[in-house]
Nucleic acid binder design. Structure first.
Lengths: 210, 210
DNA sequence: TGTACATCAGTGAACGCGCGTTCACTGATGTAC
DNA sequence: TGTACATCAGTGAACGCGCGTTCACTGATGTAC
């Protein structure tokens, strides 16, 4: 599941790039706890000291993976929104964006866990904050477009975007952790459909949301 | 912040109880990663081998804390719902329940992280699954009562409860991790108010939600 | 009331483990002149 | 074209660290008779 979607966040040398690939595979298989410099070195087939040539700490390597994760998320949302059925409707594009978020998170649960463990990332790592902000800004733009056609027109856009983000994030993380399935017995799709239906009307409202 | 809300999930010996208290303090200060048997022993003032007399593994100790966390959550939601302003309205009680969830989670972020790291808990630990299910069932009852007065009457109750759970869980976890504050700039309360306003009408609807 | 024994909580030394990190080193590649 | 040097990627031994776990042991408390 580690594929070409994970583009470089800034240019790295070829050996560093190979370490990143090994790190993505290690993360997917062993989880955030299992992502250590030594484990990455083993998977990359180099000695355990080699990664320190390219990443000064575990935190730097994790931050690189997180930055790529945010970039991949941003791109997946962009693609899904632009290809949404009934794509001319901002409401349908917003819905597609929410679905894409959940899809990305559920497909890469360990990566998502890593992306949001801020205490284990380096906030100053090049590109990390920018890519995270870019993904959120895209969500804000979709929310604003939806507001322009009548979705919760009186609400502050960033506040509204934050709460939609929290909704899809909560669905994705609770599902990935198995909590939703074991506790509620419902399917991921049924929960997502219900949640989005409450948020986003099926037809463009004509002032009914005001 | 570790207070009497944390009641035993099943009777423990007095020394085990002291270890649980030390574990709660360690968890709050050092996070999930820092919660080790040796760290708990140090804080409890006993030798590092002593905890194994009372908990057969780190996982068992963590599961005990998680079970107490679910119990405290269940009680906090129950209390908040029963004391909600305008308490006779199921919609206001559901709103109060959602707020209580976020309040509990934000007050004990490390405990919440632990409660939902299922891979580090023992699912067979006495009381854990029961208390987790009890908290969710309480939410389901509040949602059902709200549906009875007109909230999303056509929706499956457990699906609806799941998506409300995901909403408040997402708000709480993203906020605790600092992601919402750093990315959106909005306050926790403004996001929570906006999210609940979308979900739960301010006045009892008379068929407008059908 | 006294003796013998069992149970319980805790001690402290020891073990092996994986980890990050350091360091002197090798060997290949690139660059200066 | 050849020599000298610098840079880069990687090696492998070694270090100290905190961890879970084992184990023989101590000392206090409780129970049987």
């Amino acid at each position: 599941m580690v594929d070409s979607v994970y583009m470089p966040s800034h240019p790295l040398s070829a050996p560093a790039e190979r370490l990143v690939e090994a790190a993505q595979a290690t993360l997917a298989e062993a989880g955030v706890e299992g992502l250590t410099l030594r484990a990455v070195a083993r998977r990359a087939g180099v000695s355990h000291g080699a990664p320190l040539r390219h990443f000064e700490s575990t935190s730097a390597l994790r931050s690189e993976l997180a930055a790529r994760g945010f970039r991949a998320l941003d791109e997946a949302i962009d693609k899904a929104a632009s290809q949404a059925p009934g794509g001319s409707s901002p409401l349908r594009r917003l819905e597609a964006a929410g679905r894409a978020y959940v899809d990305q998170a559920v497909a890469n649960p360990a990566l998502f866990a890593l992306m949001f463990r801020q205490e284990e990332l380096d906030p100053a790592y090049p590109g990390l904050a920018e890519r995270s902000a870019a993904a959120f800004d895209q969500l804000v733009r979709h929310v604003r477009a939806a507001q322009d056609v009548g979705l919760e027109p009186g609400q502050d856009t960033r506040v509204l975007a934050s709460s939609l983000w929290a909704l899809v994030h909560g669905i994705a993380t609770l599902w990935s952790q198995g909590a939703l399935a074991s506790t509620s017995g419902a399917s991921l799709d049924s929960i997502l459909v219900a949640a989005l239906a409450i948020w986003i009307p099926q037809e463009t409202p004509e002032g009914t949301e005001a």
